[in-house]
Amino acid sequence: MLSFLSLAKNSRLANSITSIAVGKFDGLHLGHQELLKKLDAHGAILCIEQDNGVLLPKKYRSFYVKYPMFYLQLEIVRDKNDKEFVGFLQSVLPNLKYIVVGYDFRFGKNRFYYPFDLSRYFKGEVIVVNEVFYKKLSVHSGLIKELLLNGNVKQASKLLGRLYGVRGGIIKGQGLGKRKLYATINIQNDGFLLPQEGVYAGFIQLGAQSAESKKYPAVIFVGNRLSTDKSFSIEGHLLGVEVEVKEREAEFYFARKIRNNRKFENLESLKEQICYDINEAYRILKVKHDG
């Protein structure tokens, strides 16, 4: 994770950057990807950070982009006017030719300034990317967050351009699943926005983030274990395979919600429901069921 201010100490890298996309980039969704298409071969990304819930924690964002990504706390530029903001960018990037922003980009105190204000003082070209739609839905992080919080992971993934995933370190569960229910892999959330509590069909990728790593079909649970110890958990059961888990981390990908979280009176009823959930996951994911 690179600080934008650190570029002032790396003149060689700073001088090589000729275009920059400026924004939050907290999800790298379809709208963000359109901005990145406007960068030239010597482009970079400037993420202006706010301390609130994000779709994609910054330590994982570089996996999805080919350009160097730099971070800047909002407080540093929050009160700058248009002249000061442009001057700040050019003081760090002296060979800047293109600034790429979205149609809804705002900056300065009380978000007073608009994209066209950048052109008043920037000698290069300001490229403003129009609103991006997916089937008449405007693609933006706020809507994606709302969809996730309502359990609509399928629609959220359409706007993201990929399945929504939550990554974290693998931790020990309560041990009940393997003994009396179904064996699960448990993870600790590493800063991702969690979807609504419930049971989902999805995939689990074991190990470090990699495009080549296998994704195993799975049924995934997020929420408080109302029928057992009441503790919160993120756990998944692999469909049709037994894997000796040696990795330290995993990512859970959410394809579609199966049902809400609810309490069962006994373990027999819970196991019967989990069996149904597993069969539903097989059906949703179109995975052959040999059982």
Rank of each mutant, 00 (worst) to 15 (best):
D40K: 08
H29Y: 10
V65A: 03
Y64G: 02
R78S: 11
C47L: 10
P68N: 08
K80P: 00
G31W: 07
V77R: 02
L55D: 00
Y71S: 07
V54E: 14
C47V: 13
S62D: 13
D26K: 08
K58M: 13
E49Y: 06
K59V: 13
K58P: 07
Q50N: 13
D51A: 12
L74M: 11
F25Q: 00
L36H: 07
G53L: 15
G27D: 04
G27C: 06
N81P: 01
F70C: 03
Y67K: 07
L28R: 04
F63M: 06
V65N: 00
P57Y: 10
G43S: 10
N81S: 03
A41F: 15
L36Q: 05
H42C: 11
E34P: 00
C47S: 15
Q50E: 13
E49G: 01
L46A: 03
V77T: 12
V65E: 02
L55V: 07
V54S: 09
E84C: 05
L30H: 05
N81D: 13
Q73E: 15
V77D: 02
K83R: 14
A41V: 14
Y60R: 08
K59W: 13
Y71L: 13
F25W: 08
L55E: 03
Y64W: 14
L46G: 04
K38D: 03
P68E: 09
Y67I: 04
Y60F: 15
D79F: 12
K83W: 03
H29D: 08
S62T: 13
V54Y: 08
K24R: 14
Q50F: 10
G53R: 15
K24S: 12
F25M: 08
Q73H: 13
G31E: 04
H32E: 11
Q50W: 09
L74I: 11
A44N: 09
V54R: 11
H32V: 11
L30T: 05
G27W: 04
P57M: 12
Y67H: 11
Y60A: 04
L35G: 04
G43H: 07
C47M: 10
Y71W: 08
H29T: 08
S62P: 02
